[in-house]
Amino acid sequence: MQFVDNFLTTLYKTVLAENRWRFYLEGIGNTLMMTVGASLIGIVLGILIAMIKTHHNNSGKMRFLNWLCNVYTTVIRGTPVLVQLLIIYYMIFSSASSSAAPYIAALAFGLNSGAYVSETIRGGIQSVDKGQTEAGRSLGLNQSQTMRLIVLPQAVKNILPALFNEMIMLLKETSVAGWIQVVDITRAGDIVRSRMWSFSPLLVSAVIYLVLVVALTSVQRMIERRLAASDRS
């Protein structure tokens, strides 16, 4: 009973006392916003880069843009996301107000995600049967119409699981946002910790992440099952 008593007291002090749950709520809000924002930015950027590289591969045009994309992906993949975040917040957006920090973080994570997602999307585009492009072109559709209406929709369906995975990874990656004082789930735990001087708030943070990841993973599995079923029927 002593153990349960301790546990409940700690839980109370961590979450309920002095409305500390408000920090966690703010943290969840910011983390989710950054995750979704970064995912979307990453996918848009990834599609752009993938298209440029595919086009260059096929036709040899867009040499400069292709080179630019390569430099970009090399730099992003070669540096830690935290360093990128700090550079973007302190050097590029140095005059932005501190309340914009969560959005700047979402942008930074999105720029990072795009470099990785572009490879996934490129693979997805590659995996669409060539005959689809041939059929589209034979009907008289041009390169961009064929890509937009025929290839990309099929590519996205192929890589949906991978994109979901990326979003789950982003959810955890955003935990460094505290370095620019964004109150995300991790930092919320930090702040409560600084008022409580024990480490149990970190456990609460961990549990929140766990719950979110498990929830997202089960959504992903449901989508995968639906897609597989519709393919089979």
Partner: peptide
């Protein structure tokens, strides 16, 4: 070439219908 291809119809060994579109959408897309 895109304009000229509109005047040439091609039928493939593997049909190459667009799986993400209905039959009607396949026909009306172009």
């Amino acid at each position: 070439i895109n304009k000229l291809r509109q005047k040439m119809g091609m039928v493939f060994q593997n049909f190459n219908l667009f799986p993400h579109l209905t039959v009607l959408e396949n026909i009306t897309l172009a």
